[in-house]
Write a protein that binds this DNA or RNA. Sequence first.
DNA 1: CTGTTAGCGCTTTCAG
DNA 2: CTGAAAGCGCTAACAG
Lengths: 350, 350
Amino acid sequence: MRGPSRHRGATLDDVARRAEVSAMTVSNALNHPDRLSDETLARVRAAIEDLDYRPNRSARTLRSQTSRLVGVRVERSRQDRAALLLDQFLHALAESASGLGYHLIVCHAAGDTAELAAYQELRQTTAVDAFVLTGAHRDDARRRWMREQGVTFACFGRSWDLDPDSPGAFPWVDVDGAAGIRAAVEHLAGQGHTEIGLVGWPADSDLGRDRERGWREACADLGLPARVQAHVVDEFDAGRDAAHRLLDAPRGGPVPSALVCVSDTLALGVLRALSERGLRPGHDVAVTGFDNSPSAALTTPGLTSVDQPLADVAAALMRLVDAELSGVRPSATHALLPPRLVVRDSSLAR
Amino acid sequence: MRGPSRHRGATLDDVARRAEVSAMTVSNALNHPDRLSDETLARVRAAIEDLDYRPNRSARTLRSQTSRLVGVRVERSRQDRAALLLDQFLHALAESASGLGYHLIVCHAAGDTAELAAYQELRQTTAVDAFVLTGAHRDDARRRWMREQGVTFACFGRSWDLDPDSPGAFPWVDVDGAAGIRAAVEHLAGQGHTEIGLVGWPADSDLGRDRERGWREACADLGLPARVQAHVVDEFDAGRDAAHRLLDAPRGGPVPSALVCVSDTLALGVLRALSERGLRPGHDVAVTGFDNSPSAALTTPGLTSVDQPLADVAAALMRLVDAELSGVRPSATHALLPPRLVVRDSSLAR
DNA sequence: CTGTTAGCGCTTTCAG
DNA sequence: CTGAAAGCGCTAACAG
């Protein structure tokens, strides 16, 4: 029933014996099926099936120096920030990886130096083929290291400081933050809001500047002022404080009736501030977030938020990695995916 | 500077040559340092250092049939449930693993059958040493499979149907749910509540029954009635509907002034219901959750919740796995860890 | 305490 | 299109 089962499953030789070919032919059936005649291929495949044969990754890696393992760092989540979506992203990445015959190997690291050390260790000990990075910074030390080492990688987060066609360009996938914020602004304008404020990140954040641009451009297109704004770090309390400041309308400035936030964390902080001021979200001040984190759906009132297509991001990243590892010239080395606004009560008057 | 660096780092032979010993001695320096004289050990270690040598996992695995890789499944998170804490748990697990010289390899699976298939694949192709399972069920097919295959594993979630000393017992780590709910009830009683209701899971959930027991026992100890209760699936809307039902006080029954929920998902649903009824959380009806998910801190008002010590759980799980793989008889094959109540505004009168 | 031999399971290389 | 030989880097088993 189970064939000539050795203790740990069938080997290539077992399959070869059964199919009455050499081990090499079985290997070719797996890796270069085009090299075999149809008849032989069918016989080998039947034998593989019969014996429930799976190639041993260690042996393969040892010989071919390629592991079909992709490294990914998992960061510690912070209680003062909405979920990092790691849950969804990692699942999606694992799914896409497995669809292409890869597995994910996880590493953790406390800081930036430790991150590189962890990657290096994974390269040296485990022959990891590639890495998926999240959150590209400008002038990212990680991508410099990857390039130096000649390691394949792809990044969730675009290259802000490099032209996509420049020699330093690297594969990335990102979500169009400006478009997401624009959708939020348009939705709010459709609700009749005319003074739409922004709660953004500090100016040194490329991601934040991109999202801010969406706000500014959408307001301009709609003929609305884009003047009420705050720029704070991505923390709950910072969002809360910012809302208080903006709603206090310093120096008799305009009072926003809607606040667009560049993250759910900030938006949730804004909702807290509204509560503290006795204002009703949606009714008195409309609020939108970004990320569509689990909290957005579960808080009360529900938080309107920009949903990132994480499954698509993950799939695109794995395709890029696979293309590079396969030596295929991919049709594009980067992708900017459109987000989708999920409307909930925090931005509706009733 | 970099020694006789081959293309992909130094090998055992490189180190052996440099230390003027045999390859075997270098191997022993790594795996059985007690077998070497102090003098030789020091020389080998210096050579390892000099060459920045790291053992090749594939070669080691191929030869010794042990990979120091631990498999863990990542599930898709659901938008209608509070974060599964995968973020925090996975990071903690990765950290504990790396402290003991292991790495985590991720697998995904759509259903229960697919899960076993994924584990089997990881065993056959990648020689994964052990698995960490989450969420044990009664009569769990996964642990039966693990046992049949002779695979090492440890489970986040206790064995409900087996005596810890019975032959079928397996290593597990869990959080004491009853104690967590008890803490919530005691806190509410301390706030003056005398009719404390429960929003629990269906009776077929062992985990839910355990938490319910905490409520029942705490109420009994405090001389309070434990009579208002609902049992629903773990979804936001189910919690919301349950709260409406309980607060409608069917048949003129008692109206609870506090609701203890067995999950944050349910508690967040309850908060939504309060809002729909124009009731103020904490002031009119106190609410507590379980998990201390990110949403608990970020919703308004903040949700009082039972925090699970995930870092401790992860560390204990990896210790169990390591003990079993090392053939060490562990001092205990399971651990029940105490949770900690985090009090926020949802359970405070002001 | 240290070294020799052999081979884990696969794929690269090169011949047929 | 198929196969034989060799060896990836390491460690188990044994010998000295």
